[in-house]
């Protein structure tokens, strides 16, 4: 089993629901966004960079097979789960941020201060908490906590806390256009492998040799 995700850019309407679902479910502190949706070529989201050209690009951890972040981590806090997902052990991370420099996708986020303080600074209502409320361990390692320790790195886990219960990641469930799909990359007959084959799927920065397990299906040109 090798986890993979396919994002159909033809279906993506740039609504950023996945961004918000991800932020909510994973209790991300202010300023932290594991999942981001942009309008490539434009400085403003949902503003076409040129007439007739508009598509959207969701970007989060690409769960690379040859993940530079896992290779540089001095203590093995960033590691590959048996299904290939790249996870961070919040109890082992020393916060050196080497992985943040090494990641070409810019998806790794640091806890510059305690989340409670970050909430306060951003003016959140007192004691307001959101997100999956319990710690989640995978083979004994703390891969999700609603309140992250100050000084550790975090990023998308493909919602490890939900997948381990047989549920889909929040972004997949939250997408109104059903543009996202997860599946088994090892199985040549899986739905995602079929889409990758038939729809000319591409990866981000393939030239970096990171072997992402997130694939994008190119959108058709818009009719004007």
């Amino acid at each position: 089993m090798k986890m993979g995700m396919v994002i159909d850019l033809e279906k993506c309407i740039g609504c950023r629901s996945c961004m918000v679902a991800c932020k909510q479910h994973n209790a991300q502190p202010p300023g932290t966004w594991w999942n981001r949706v942009f309008t490539p070529g434009s400085h403003h989201h949902l503003t076409p960079p040129a007439k007739g050209i508009e598509f959207f690009l969701p970007v989060h951890c690409q769960h690379c097979e040859n993940a530079p972040c896992a290779k540089v981590c001095p203590v093995g806090a960033t590691y590959h789960a048996p299904d290939g997902a790249v996870l961070i052990d919040f109890e082992r991370c020393i916060g050196c941020r080497y992985c943040m420099s090494a990641c070409p996708y810019g998806v790794r986020q640091f806890n510059w201060e305690a989340p409670e303080k970050a909430h306060q600074r951003a003016g959140y209502q007192e004691h307001y908490r959101f997100g999956y409320p319990e710690d989640h361990r995978k083979e004994g390692r703390l891969v999700y906590a609603p309140l992250r320790p100050k000084g550790v790195v975090e990023k998308c886990t493909f919602c490890a806390q939900y997948r381990d219960k047989g549920e889909l990641p929040a972004c997949v469930r939250g997408c109104p256009g059903k543009a996202r799909m997860i599946g088994d990359l090892d199985d040549p007959d899986s739905e995602i492998r079929k889409l990758i084959r038939e729809r000319n799927a591409f990866q981000l920065l393939p030239e970096k040799g990171t072997k992402p397990t997130v694939y994008y299906l190119p959108p058709k040109a818009k009719e004007i």
Partner: peptide, 21 residues
């Protein structure tokens, strides 16, 4: 590092902004 030439826009070099945290 995460830069691309958006589909349909050859010649444009676009960088994906990063959440400051």
């Amino acid at each position: 590092p995460m830069t691309m030439t958006p589909l349909g826009l050859p010649g444009v070099h676009w960088s994906l902004p990063i959440a400051s945290g």
